[in-house]
Protein backbone atom coordinates (compact mmCIF):
# COMPACT_ATOMS: atom_id res chain seq x y z
CA UNK A 1 0.00 0.00 0.00
CA UNK A 2 1.22 3.41 -0.97
CA UNK A 3 0.57 5.19 2.30
CA UNK A 4 2.54 2.56 4.16
CA UNK A 5 5.45 2.94 1.79
CA UNK A 6 5.40 6.68 2.43
CA UNK A 7 5.62 6.19 6.20
CA UNK A 8 8.39 3.63 5.86
CA UNK A 9 10.35 6.04 3.67
CA UNK A 10 9.80 8.90 6.11
CA UNK A 11 11.90 6.96 8.63
CA UNK A 12 14.70 6.18 6.21
CA UNK A 13 13.45 2.71 5.20
CA UNK A 14 15.51 1.29 8.05
CA UNK A 15 14.65 -1.41 10.53
CA UNK A 16 15.68 0.93 13.34
CA UNK A 17 12.71 3.11 12.40
CA UNK A 18 10.24 0.32 13.07
CA UNK A 19 8.77 1.72 16.29
CA UNK A 20 7.92 5.17 14.90
CA UNK A 21 6.62 3.50 11.72
CA UNK A 22 4.22 1.37 13.75
CA UNK A 23 3.25 4.42 15.83
CA UNK A 24 2.35 6.35 12.68
CA UNK A 25 0.39 3.48 11.15
CA UNK A 26 -1.54 3.04 14.35
CA UNK A 27 -2.26 6.75 14.53
CA UNK A 28 -3.95 6.58 11.14
CA UNK A 29 -5.77 3.25 11.54
CA UNK A 30 -6.36 3.17 15.28
CA UNK A 31 -4.71 -0.26 15.39
CA UNK A 32 -2.20 -2.33 13.43
CA UNK A 33 -4.04 -4.25 10.71
CA UNK A 34 -2.65 -7.55 9.53
CA UNK A 35 -2.08 -6.36 5.94
CA UNK A 36 -0.32 -3.29 7.27
CA UNK A 37 2.11 -5.40 9.25
CA UNK A 38 2.95 -7.62 6.29
CA UNK A 39 3.38 -4.57 4.05
CA UNK A 40 5.81 -2.99 6.50
CA UNK A 41 7.82 -6.21 6.67
CA UNK A 42 7.90 -6.40 2.88
CA UNK A 43 9.00 -2.77 2.52
CA UNK A 44 11.79 -3.25 5.02
CA UNK A 45 12.67 -6.71 3.66
CA UNK A 46 12.52 -8.29 7.12
CA UNK A 47 10.55 -11.29 8.44
CA UNK A 48 6.97 -10.57 9.51
CA UNK A 49 7.78 -12.13 12.87
CA UNK A 50 10.21 -9.26 13.58
CA UNK A 51 7.38 -6.76 13.22
CA UNK A 52 5.03 -8.83 15.38
CA UNK A 53 7.70 -9.17 18.03
CA UNK A 54 7.70 -5.39 18.48
CA UNK A 55 3.97 -4.95 18.01
CA UNK A 56 3.29 -7.36 20.85
CA UNK A 57 6.13 -6.29 23.17
CA UNK A 58 5.10 -2.64 23.46
CA UNK A 59 1.86 -1.85 25.20
CA UNK A 60 1.09 1.09 22.96
CA UNK A 61 0.35 -1.18 20.00
CA UNK A 62 -2.94 -2.93 19.32
CA UNK A 63 -3.69 -5.66 16.85
CA UNK A 64 -7.47 -5.46 16.96
CA UNK A 65 -9.71 -2.52 16.05
CA UNK A 66 -11.10 -0.40 18.82
CA UNK A 67 -14.46 1.04 19.73
CA UNK A 68 -15.55 4.57 18.88
CA UNK A 69 -14.29 5.82 22.23
CA UNK A 70 -11.38 4.54 24.25
CA UNK A 71 -11.63 4.53 28.02
CA UNK A 72 -8.33 4.41 29.87
CA UNK A 73 -8.76 3.79 33.58
CA UNK A 74 -5.66 4.81 35.50
CA UNK A 75 -4.44 2.11 37.85
CA UNK A 76 -1.25 3.93 38.86
CA UNK A 77 -0.36 3.89 42.54
CA UNK A 78 -2.00 7.19 43.43
CA UNK A 79 -5.17 6.16 41.64
CA UNK A 80 -5.03 2.68 43.17
CA UNK A 81 -5.01 3.96 46.75
CA UNK A 82 -7.83 6.33 45.89
CA UNK A 83 -10.10 3.63 44.48
CA UNK A 84 -9.13 3.25 40.80
CA UNK A 85 -9.79 -0.49 40.87
CA UNK A 86 -13.37 0.07 42.04
CA UNK A 87 -13.95 2.28 39.03
CA UNK A 88 -12.52 -0.35 36.71
CA UNK A 89 -14.71 -3.06 38.28
CA UNK A 90 -17.76 -0.90 37.87
CA UNK A 91 -17.06 -0.09 34.23
CA UNK A 92 -16.41 -3.74 33.44
CA UNK A 93 -19.69 -4.67 35.04
CA UNK A 94 -21.84 -1.93 33.58
CA UNK A 95 -20.45 -2.22 30.07
CA UNK A 96 -20.26 -6.01 30.15
CA UNK A 97 -16.62 -6.20 29.05
CA UNK A 98 -13.28 -7.11 30.54
CA UNK A 99 -10.33 -4.73 30.52
CA UNK A 100 -8.89 -4.74 26.99
CA UNK A 101 -12.19 -5.54 25.30
CA UNK A 102 -14.66 -3.54 23.23
CA UNK A 103 -18.39 -3.34 23.90
CA UNK A 104 -20.71 -5.29 21.55
CA UNK A 105 -22.09 -2.08 20.03
CA UNK A 106 -18.57 -0.82 19.33
CA UNK A 107 -19.06 2.22 21.50
CA UNK A 108 -16.28 1.79 24.06
CA UNK A 109 -12.97 0.02 24.44
CA UNK A 110 -11.93 -0.26 28.08
CA UNK A 111 -8.28 -0.49 29.08
CA UNK A 112 -6.13 0.20 32.09
CA UNK A 113 -3.06 2.42 32.17
CA UNK A 114 -0.43 2.83 34.82
CA UNK A 115 -0.35 6.54 35.61
CA UNK A 116 -1.15 9.30 33.18
CA UNK A 117 0.75 11.86 35.24
CA UNK A 118 -2.26 13.65 36.73
CA UNK A 119 -1.89 11.91 40.08
CA UNK A 120 -3.04 15.02 41.95
CA UNK A 121 -6.51 14.35 40.52
CA UNK A 122 -6.67 10.65 41.40
CA UNK A 123 -8.61 8.59 40.56
CA UNK A 124 -8.38 9.49 36.88
CA UNK A 125 -10.08 8.13 33.76
CA UNK A 126 -9.07 9.31 30.29
CA UNK A 127 -11.75 9.03 27.62
CA UNK A 128 -10.38 9.72 24.13
CA UNK A 129 -8.31 12.85 24.88
CA UNK A 130 -10.33 14.12 27.84
CA UNK A 131 -9.09 13.74 31.40
CA UNK A 132 -11.65 13.18 34.11
CA UNK A 133 -10.36 13.37 37.65
CA UNK A 134 -11.55 12.98 41.26
CA UNK A 135 -14.07 10.40 40.14
CA UNK A 136 -16.15 7.86 41.97
CA UNK A 137 -18.39 5.15 40.56
CA UNK A 138 -21.41 7.38 40.24
CA UNK A 139 -19.52 10.17 38.52
CA UNK A 140 -17.85 7.89 36.01
CA UNK A 141 -21.19 6.46 34.91
CA UNK A 142 -22.44 10.02 34.48
CA UNK A 143 -19.39 10.98 32.43
CA UNK A 144 -19.94 8.11 29.98
CA UNK A 145 -23.20 9.67 28.85
CA UNK A 146 -21.26 12.38 27.04
CA UNK A 147 -19.81 9.87 24.61
CA UNK A 148 -22.04 8.35 21.97
Amino acid sequence: MKWIRKIVEKYGKKESGLIPILQDVQKIKGYLPEEGISDIAAELKIPIARVYSLATFYKAFRLIPRGRHSIHVCLGTACHVRGGAKIMDRLEQDLGVRSGETTQDGRFTVESVRCVGCCGLAPVVVIDDDFHGKLNQKKVIQVLKKYE
Binding site: E15, S16, G17, I19, Q23, F57, Y58, A60
Partner: peptide, 22 residues
Protein backbone atom coordinates in the same frame (compact mmCIF):
# COMPACT_ATOMS: atom_id res chain seq x y z
CA UNK B 1 8.59 8.38 21.67
CA UNK B 2 8.52 5.28 23.84
CA UNK B 3 6.24 2.36 23.21
CA UNK B 4 4.74 2.08 26.68
CA UNK B 5 6.81 -0.50 28.50
CA UNK B 6 7.99 0.10 32.06
CA UNK B 7 11.19 -1.86 31.58
CA UNK B 8 12.26 0.58 28.82
CA UNK B 9 13.19 3.02 31.59
CA UNK B 10 16.11 0.72 32.36
CA UNK B 11 19.06 2.11 30.46
CA UNK B 12 20.08 -0.89 28.34
CA UNK B 13 16.45 -1.62 27.44
CA UNK B 14 15.93 2.03 26.57
CA UNK B 15 18.85 1.97 24.17
CA UNK B 16 17.56 -1.22 22.54
CA UNK B 17 14.27 0.58 22.08
CA UNK B 18 15.93 3.58 20.40
CA UNK B 19 17.63 1.11 18.06
CA UNK B 20 14.18 -0.10 17.06
CA UNK B 21 14.23 -3.40 18.94
CA UNK B 22 12.07 -4.83 21.68
Amino acid sequence: RGGGAFVCGEETALMASIEGKA
